[in-house]
Design a protein around this nucleic acid. Sequence first.
DNA 1: GCAGAAATTTGACACAAGTCAAAAAAATAC
DNA 2: GTATTTTTTTGACTTGTGTCAAATTTCTGC
Lengths: 206, 206
Amino acid sequence: MRHFRTTKTDRKRKTRTMNLYIKRIKDLHSKLDPAILTELEEAFVDKKFAKGSYLLRPEQICTAHLLIKEGIARKFYIHQDREITIEIYFPDDVAISLDSYIMQNPGDVFIEALTELEVTVIDYSRFYKMKNKYPEVMMLDKMFIEYYAVWFEQRLRAFQTLDASQRYLKLLEKEPQIVQFLPVTIVASYLNISLETLSRIRSKVS
Amino acid sequence: MRHFRTTKTDRKRKTRTMNLYIKRIKDLHSKLDPAILTELEEAFVDKKFAKGSYLLRPEQICTAHLLIKEGIARKFYIHQDREITIEIYFPDDVAISLDSYIMQNPGDVFIEALTELEVTVIDYSRFYKMKNKYPEVMMLDKMFIEYYAVWFEQRLRAFQTLDASQRYLKLLEKEPQIVQFLPVTIVASYLNISLETLSRIRSKVS
DNA sequence: GCAGAAATTTGACACAAGTCAAAAAAATAC
DNA sequence: GTATTTTTTTGACTTGTGTCAAATTTCTGC
């Protein structure tokens, strides 16, 4: 397997359209009562995953928020023997299979470590208890889901309104690290276009 | 303007894949403390809209959840002089421009009454206060957003994996009322295909 | 019921993007 | 450094879906 071009110094945050909202979440997070913050941090458990391993597989129930500390991961599903990448995670992003998590039903996605990966994990039931104990925590979780919903609505819109090369150019503008650090296979599956089409687009653009 | 084929007796709920989750929300809703329930109901204000009028327009800030009591509405945006329908609402559905609502920023969508419409509206700030006062209400709102997020993720997947006729057949199976009651123009813009393509698909299917 | 308007269907054609296959380039192992 | 494997590019061809235009059907108002 080839090594991706990525280093520790190289991790700018994803520049999504909703950075402001992310900022608001972080602000609220940092303004939590110190006691709650401590309790929250104690609830998190660090884990490491080898490159190529899976943090979640189909048929499993997603029981955790996975906060990426170091490395790159992605979530994908398989449709007709073809992988389609839903999300790509960099440090500070949260990986989750939302439908499996909220309904505690078996999901159908893979979450894969694309590099050596360090994550910090908060377990479903422990987080659930904290949410019920502290409305502020519930509020933060709600904001996370709101962000998630709006992000998906925007991504849907990209598929409805942009053709392959427009989607590529937008990706290059909004999430350049994805194009920069990941093999074309994965970029293509994230844009939902074929390898060959992506290759042709690239040769025209540059 | 033509009248849609719809009557008062004709309103089965949308059969989305997440009916179970909807049921859970309703269960929780009905199990709310009676005092809270009353306060919640008092916060709702009924409104009527004429067919063809807009409940929300671009540049406006979405300040309310709009619960449909009677009639049909839709949310759409305009891309290159072309309307793209995001969601279609039947009685019991909640119409909202989520990104505008959560960030209290001007949005870019229309919410349009497709028939004479009766809605019940809860204002942003009043709902906000109630959410902070009662964790149960916050929880319900959070579940609503979760439902919303998962629904959008599923809709995105339909666009990634299904071609035009497969999307049509899926719509026919999952949300037959949309095909049944709405003009082809709107069905096509909901499937994000051209009128002509939809027409050809229909002639092959039936 | 008839005339005009609106919605829907049908036809001809264009083009974006997929597929399959093969060549070229780049990365990895020895 | 060379050989092997993997990734990326290029070419030829096919197909789904859009566009424009015209014909047809269906509504609506009188």
